[in-house]
């Protein structure tokens, strides 16, 4: 139960950050990604602000701990190599992000605005995720 409540709090905090920073506005994101047009560098400060909090607190408070406060262990990604799949995936994600100005967090936060286009985006994103997992299961189980 505690894990569920703390996750709710974290989702809220991140959602508040997405709305107040401008990240939840696809037009603003496209302005940031448009280097050749009237480039709007504002959103670079979102990542800057996020890292100014996450990076020092991770290394000073989280890393020295054996376990998280409410769970038995930290669940960190086990992969360390930068394989072809990672590069291809990141490049693919960048294309979709550049086409729409929407990445997964802002897509979720915009759902409460009730716009049809966002629902289309999220449903298509879920289909893309499920298909990718099915295909990658087939490939690895061969």
């Amino acid at each position: 139960m505690k894990l569920v409540l703390s996750a709710l709090l974290c989702g809220l905090l991140i959602g508040l950050g997405l709305v107040t920073s401008g990240m939840a506005d696809p037009a603003k994101v496209l302005g940031f990604l448009d280097l050749l047009g009237q480039w709007d560098p504002t959103l670079a400060f979102v990542m800057g602000g996020g890292l100014c909090v996450y990076l020092p607190l991770y290394h000073l408070i989280v890393k020295p701990r054996q376990a998280p406060v409410l769970a038995l262990s930290f669940q960190l990604p086990s992969k360390t190599k930068t394989e072809k799949r990672l590069i291809m995936g990141a490049a693919t994600f960048g294309i979709g992000w550049g086409m729409s100005g929407i990445c997964p967090g802002p897509a979720m936060t915009n759902l409460s605005g009730g716009q049809t286009g966002i629902f289309l985006f999220v449903i298509a994103m879920l289909v893309g995720m499920i298909l990718t997992n099915k295909v990658s299961d087939l490939v690895t189980n061969k």
Binding site: L120, A124, M125, G128, T132, S136
Partner: peptide, 12 residues
């Protein structure tokens, strides 16, 4: 774009 984001984030 949603489809591409879904595929890309899972691969990447």
């Amino acid at each position: 774009a949603g489809l591409i984001v879904g595929i890309g984030t899972q691969l990447g």
